[in-house]
């Protein structure tokens, strides 16, 4: 099988095959992908661990107002410095990261559940359910996401649920589109005909053939949604519309830090921002590797 596919007729495909022969995609990129996955997963692991452990070790310092210690630059005692209320920024930033990640994870799970459900139903049923759901999706997409988020959050000020709902509502559409496209191509395959002929109901086909086949894509889009959700939450909180101000989140901290920046307190902005960027890069690295893995592979076909 595989060898036959490698032997391509047209010249363009020969070139491609020649690259395969040179070994780049298999050996080199495989190693690079593993490295990328390792670095991404390691980085994310360290960040998540720190976000859990640090606020747990010093539970008070996050909210502890210590007016003898205001606006201190980074030092051995306060590695990220302190803010205008004398709160330790190291603990506070990591506590903020914990909140942000938790909110983002809930949103990612919510978005892929809703997106997969809508995409699978629309793609599998086709006809009018498909048209109605897709027009709904277009309607959501037609409004700028942040604006829609702001409207939802503004209606229910300061509620955690409102933030989560606003992110889910604006992020499920991508997942739904990906899943629908996948389902559309799957449901015309002869193996679906074979299942129908074997007496399977549509629900059975959806559960046993279609959903397992799109699970990989859906999981991938969850990882892709994660950094988006972090940024979305940060943006809402930065605008003062997100999480309640007493809850430390990256967005709230950056919002407070705005005024400090003018007073020379660079550390108020720098450390939370760096953590935000690192989190994004780590998840993006994992997502990219997972996407490559989803490309159908032919490794074992050579055993024919």
């Amino acid at each position: 099988m595989a060898e036959r596919e490698i032997v391509a007729g047209a010249i363009g495909q020969w070139r491609q095959a020649a690259r395969t022969r040179a070994g780049t995609p298999r050996g080199g990129a495989g190693g690079r992908a593993r490295l990328r996955l390792g670095v991404g997963a390691g980085l994310l692991g360290v960040l998540v661990l720190a976000a859990i452990v640090v606020p747990w070790l010093w539970p008070a310092s996050e909210q502890l107002f210590d007016y003898t210690q205001v606006r201190l630059p980074p030092s051995g005692e306060h590695v990220f410095g302190t803010d205008q209320a004398g709160r330790d920024l190291f603990v506070r930033t990591l506590a903020g990261l914990r909140v942000s990640l938790l909110v983002a994870a809930i949103c990612a799970v919510g978005a892929i559940t809703l997106g997969t459900a809508v995409g699978a139903v629309a793609g599998f049923l086709g006809g009018w359910p498909d048209r109605v759901l897709m027009r709904l999706l277009d309607t959501v997409n037609a409004v700028p996401h942040l604006l829609l988020g702001i409207v939802i959050v503004a209606l229910y000020r300061g509620s955690l649920t409102a933030v989560i709902v606003s992110i889910v509502v604006t992020h499920w559409t991508t997942v739904a589109r990906i899943v629908r496209a996948e389902v559309l191509s799957l449901r015309r395959r002869p193996f679906v005909d074979a299942a129908i002929s074997g007496g399977a109901t549509r629900g059975h086909i959806l559960r046993r053939h279609i959903l397992p086949a799109v699970a990989g894509q859906a999981a991938l889009s969850a990882v892709l949604v994660l950094p988006h959700a972090v940024w979305h939450e940060t943006a809402l909180s930065f605008l003062g519309l997100g999480l309640p101000p007493h809850l430390a989140s990256i967005g709230n901290i950056l919002s407070d830090a705005r005024s400090e920046l003018l007073l020379g307190g660079w550390w108020n902005v720098a450390f939370p921002s760096v953590l935000l960027v690192l989190t994004t890069l780590a998840t993006a690295g994992i997502a990219a590797t997972l996407r490559d893995r989803l490309v159908p592979r032919r490794r074992s076909e050579l055993a024919l």
Partner: peptide, 19 residues
């Protein structure tokens, strides 16, 4: 099918995979 005959075309065209 599967007796190895197709691999000859890949070999003769220098299109064998890296392994």
């Amino acid at each position: 099918s599967g007796c190895g005959k197709s691999v000859l075309t890949s070999a003769l065209l220098g299109l064998l995979p890296a392994n």
